[in-house]
Design a protein around this nucleic acid. Structure first.
Lengths: 341, 341
DNA sequence: TTTACATTCACAAACGCTTGCATAAACTGA
DNA sequence: TCAGTTTATGCAAGCGTTTGTGAATGTAAA
């Protein structure tokens, strides 16, 4: 069918092996032959068959990207496209291809990972989330398959390469900002509790409160998915309380969006009635009204770094110890918070 | 290294070919042997090597997804994640894998397509855009490589399978809506002129105006990228005119976002001073203030349909004529338009 | 002129799977 | 009992590469 290495060999009057070595630019082939072979390749429009190559060298030049199983909804959070963009840029540079997960529920996603791993479809995997007791992560370490996670692993932290922000510190800083504005009744709205990122952000919030002697009130802490609709629900819950909060730390911009909407529906003004701070600095955090004070976690860089780590890891077969990359964050102060009189 | 078909064969006391046939569930193998082989597979934890399989059957179970070359920015428009989501869901169902492009500029993107095609990395391709004189599309038809495009091809329309909305009609309807509200000075803000989708939407707009005898004024037509920043620029340009428009048809929600922002900066109110209608019904079109009247093009379905078409096409090697699928649209009337007194 | 050693390349065996063809066994019916 | 037929499985040749090994040629030293 297509033109193969043999055709080229025939045309250039050499053996297939020689052609192969020319492709690999092996020093064992004389410049003359190389030229001749290259010419033949050009003329025939030859392109190597990756499958055959992969089979022979036992490697694909591809990396798998796993999004949370709620992938149906995951892509609705701009976080993922953005981190994908970062990964893609490195993948492109290094001539790796990108395999993305398509899984619906948890089980399907797991199947897909298995397919990637067992089927030798990818050389390594990037996990775009980190949750407690994640069977996929367990599987990956079990199989000793190269992978890196975006977020902090829930266990084996020292053996797993990961890239993350210092979410605890960021959250603490955010909370302190609210405290310095005179807020005492500060609520926390986080993603599902099994996400490490939620845990860390909650931790920072709690520690900031404790530090200044504010009691951490469980009623002020609500959890749900990183979606807009969830933000709405959370607000309903919080503002049904006796003593309603005057400020909140929200773990995701998408949720903040929902919060703002809901606040409006309840006839509450942000920041006049309640101050809001959140996370991620999605592009939409600038366009909400008011624009959000949010921590820029540099999503794109998270993608870049995770891809770099993985590829590095693939190059240096094993040995190399696990690495940890902490991408710095920066709080973007905008108009969603207000000093209490 | 890993467990291969031979290991299974040995363990089950059959030939490798038999194992292969068991995997394929061939009727030529007796139920008894099947059971025995399956047991052996289980026990050894056998998983077929896709590379080897692909090499043998000359197919990968993968489809490539090509986003516009400005991929760096493309993923910033939620259109792409959303359509990807649709594609992914079908891919998953049919056990296809997804290869996404990572290309930076036009040339890189083209390279990547070549790699996919020549390298036999994918069985077919979905093109997520359609622009005039697109070398990639030309290449694909030239190579007679299976592909479908989301959007209307700029040529060879009858030979290319594509899925699209009736953008002309949608745009006409949108414009008529504005006209029925008494607007006479209606501007059009579109994406770059080489995009087919821009062309169609412009066409609908123009035809609606002509039908009721409103002159189409070139000053009222501006073009730029489907980005928020572009929307801003467009507004500046339009409101520097002597006779400023009282309404606009905008070809993309992201742009509308920019438009609304800019309008505000200029001290203009939407819809009081200017009515806005736009396209795509991204989730953010509900959360802008005011919520946008926009046409819901059913992005997710576009993804679904394109994937279905492609896979269908892959099954029925050639023969089958090209298909065209028009996904119905629905205008979402919200608060961004107002009747002129 | 012979030996020793580079240099340059070809041979052939993998890699793990599919599949056309051959064959052996078991069954049919006369 | 035997030819004919069906059923169940094995053999071996691919698929298009890579790569270890060794053969042929050339060159320099002895």
């Amino acid at each position: 069918m297509a033109v193969t290495i043999k055709d080229v060999a025939k045309k250039a009057n050499v053996a297939p092996s020689t052609v192969s070595r020319v492709i690999a630019d092996s020093p064992r082939i004389s410049l003359n032959t190389k030229k001749r072979v290259r010419k033949a390749m050009k003329e025939l429009g030859y392109h190597p068959n990756v499958n055959a190559r992969n089979l022979a060298v036992r490697s694909t030049q591809a990396i798998g990207v796993i999004m949370p199983s709620s992938a149906e909804t995951a892509l609705q959070n701009p976080f993922f496209p953005e981190v994908l963009r970062g990964i893609g840029s490195i993948a492109h540079e290094t001539e790796y291809s990108l395999y993305v997960s398509t899984g619906g529920d948890d089980e399907q996603l797991f199947d897909e990972v298995k397919r990637m791993v067992y089927g030798h479809r990818v050389d390594g995997i990037i996990l775009l989330y980190s949750r407690v007791n994640d069977p996929i992560m367990d599987f990956l370490v079990e199989e000793n398959f190269p992978f890196v996670v975006v977020g902090k692993p829930y266990k084996n932290e020292s053996q797993i390469t990961y890239v993350d922000n210092d979410n605890i510190e960021a959250s603490r800083e955010l909370t302190n900002h609210l405290i310095s504005f005179g807020h005492q009744h500060i609520a926390f709205i986080g993603g599902t509790t099994d996400l490490m990122v939620t845990k860390d952000r909650l931790l920072g919030y709690q520690s900031a409160l404790s530090e200044v002697g504010i009691e951490v009130c469980q009623d002020y802490i609500v959890h749900d998915q990183f979606l807009r609709s969830s933000g709405k629900k959370a607000v309903e819950q919080l503002f049904a309380l006796k003593k309603t909060p005057t400020a909140m730390v929200i773990a995701d911009d998408m949720m903040s969006l929902g919060v703002i909407n809901m606040l409006e529906t309840l006839g509450l003004d942000c920041p006049d009635d309640v101050s809001i701070t959140s996370f991620n600095n999605l592009y939409l955090s600038e366009i909400t009204r008011p624009p959000l004070t949010t921590v820029d976690i540099q999503i794109y860089k998270l993608g870049i770094q995770s891809a770099k780590c993985l590829i590095e890891q693939l190059k240096t077969k094993d040995d190399e110890p696990a690495r940890r990359v902490i991408v710095p964050y920066a709080i973007k102060f905008r108009q969603s918070t207000r000093k209490l009189d």
